[in-house]
Design a binder for these strands. Structure first.
Lengths: 186, 186
DNA sequence: TGGGTCATGTAACCTGTTACATGATTAG
DNA sequence: CTAATCATGTAACAGGTTACATGACCCA
């Protein structure tokens, strides 16, 4: 999956691992986190698969850089991935995993927990509001307005998600507070 | 994470790997998929860490079974995990990854894609509606109403999520259809 | 002189996926 | 007779995380 995300970025234009790390952080990281080391490793695999070539470019005052360029076979692979079926609805939510077993703890501990989540979600929502600026930042990279539309869609998803998430938390806190009122000795 | 999910189930009562596989499918699988082979492997690790002990119980007419029982140290580990901080808001959505790069394909191909997602989401929503029955099925296991509350919360999350998801898809289709109307030659 | 940016990774480990393997009993 | 249920896994591989490593230049 990450391999294909990187391939998709390379398809916008040739770039270095370092560039990818940064663009990733400004765009894909809203729904996919990847470590720098992993990106560099995947680039090796992409090269090995013949999906991109690399060229070392010397610079002055800065370290050499390795510019990756997508190949025809890489473009085909990108298209294959986009059109393959078996759409993945499956998710892994560490958050729900923890919530599921929270009955082991007291009501008060859980109210605290949900309030902490709430604060985190505000931080995320704030980060999200700055995201449209990012699209402008990469306007030279993504000149095609059609491509920017899908970027926008993923951002809309992020915003809808964070709104729903905050509603869910509020609802959980409400339920816990009612329970506490009915049953103050817990 | 999976290790702790299994540990949480063992905390409800002693059970076999086979039992865990089934309970998992009826509950945690809504937000965490795990392979049978992985569950058996994690059980070995749990045992190695001293979080559970196992006992082989012969049966007649059926193969022997290996019953796992959580230890004190396992209970402590469960609590440690529940109370550790660094709440994980981070997600990995293969779906968004693909959506992000969909600009490579035509509008019609993308409308088809979103319609396919819509159908899948109906299937998920339907599966969700049958979930409350599952809670009753495991009523003997989770006798504490407080524990059932958190199960319910994760299900509410699932339902809220699937609703939000369908709204997002509808919105995407709407945008694509408008674009198609304005620009019929694409 | 200390921190940030530029630029590259390696090594070890942990987690998740896919494919395969076995074999008895029971219900239709 | 055939498929499902009960019950256990192993082996190989793919993907993700954590910790560590290097080094020059620039700005305050």
């Amino acid at each position: 999956m990450l391999k294909h995300g990187i391939l998709g970025l390379l398809n916008y234009g040739s770039m270095t691992g370092y560039d990818i790390v940064h663009i990733f952080k400004d765009s894909l990281s809203y729904f996919w986190q990847a470590q720098t080391s992993q990106i560099y490793r995947e680039l090796q695999t992409i090269k090995k698969n013949g999906w991109a070539t690399d060229e070392t470019v010397p610079q002055d005052g800065k370290p050499d850089k390795k510019v990756f360029t997508i190949t025809e076979s890489g473009k085909e692979e990108l298209k294959r991935w986009l059109t393959e079926d078996g759409v993945e609805f499956g998710l892994k939510s560490p958050l729900m995993m923890k919530t599921f077993f929270r009955g082991e703890l007291s009501i008060d501990e859980n109210i605290d927990y949900f309030e902490k989540l709430q604060n985190e979600s505000y931080a995320f929502a704030y980060k999200m509001t700055s995201a449209p600026t990012e699209t402008e930042k990469y306007a030279t990279l993504i000149h095609d307005p059609m491509k920017a539309l899908y970027w926008k869609m993923t951002m809309e998803y992020g915003m809808m998600y964070s709104k729903m998430y905050r509603q869910w938390i509020e609802n959980c806190i409400k339920q816990l507070e009612e329970l506490k009122y009915e049953n103050p000795d817990n």
